[in-house]
C-alpha cells in the first residue's frame, strides 16, 4: 500500500484541492449567514491540508504532516474565537446576517 501515488497520481489530488478551495471561496461570497461563512473557511483550510499531506507523501517527508498538525491547532483556535465573536454579534444585533454589519460604513 506504499505506492498510492503511482496509482492515483499527484495531479488528481491537486485538482481535488483546487475545486474544494474554490467551493470554499464560493461559500464565503454566496451566503449571508456568518456560521456558513465560517464553515466555508474550514473547507478552504481542509483543501490546503489535503494538498500538504499529498505532497508530504510525494516527497516522503514527515514535515508536511507536522505542518498540517499545526494548521489544525490554529484552525481550532480560530473557530473558537470566531464563534465567540459570532455569539457576541448575535447578542448585540439580534441576527448574524453579515450584511447587517454596516457600522463602519462611512
Amino acid at each position: 500500500m506504499g505506492n498510492i501515488l503511482n496509482e492515483i497520481g499527484i495531479e488528481n489530488y491537486i485538482f481535488l484541492s483546487v475545486i474544494l478551495f474554490s467551493i470554499g471561496v464560493f461559500g464565503v461570497l454566496y451566503r449571508r449567514n456568518a456560521i456558513i461563512v465560517f464553515m466555508s473557511i474550514e473547507i478552504m483550510l481542509n483543501a490546503v491540508n489535503l494538498l500538504f499531506v499529498a505532497f508530504s507523501t510525494y516527497h516522503q517527508d514527515a514535515q508536511g504532516q507536522v505542518f498540517v498538525f499545526f494548521s489544525m491547532a490554529v484552525a481550532a483556535a480560530e473557530v473558537a474565537v470566531g464563534l465567540a465573536i459570532v455569539v457576541s454579534i448575535f447578542r448585540n444585533l439580534g441576527s448574524i446576517d453579515l450584511d447587517n454589519l454596516k457600522n463602519l460604513k462611512g
Binding site: 491540508n49 507523501t57 473558537a80 464563534l83 455569539v87
Partner: peptide, 27 residues
C-alpha cells in the same frame, strides 16, 4: 488512503469532534 493514520485520527477528533460540536452548540 495516504496511510497517514495519525493525521486521520487527529482530523476526526479535532474537526468532526471539537469544531463541529462548537458549530452545533452555537447554532
Amino acid at each position: 488512503l495516504f496511510n497517514a493514520q495519525f493525521l486521520a485520527v487527529v482530523h476526526i477528533i479535532v474537526y468532526s469532534g471539537a469544531i463541529m460540536i462548537l458549530f452545533l452548540f452555537t447554532v
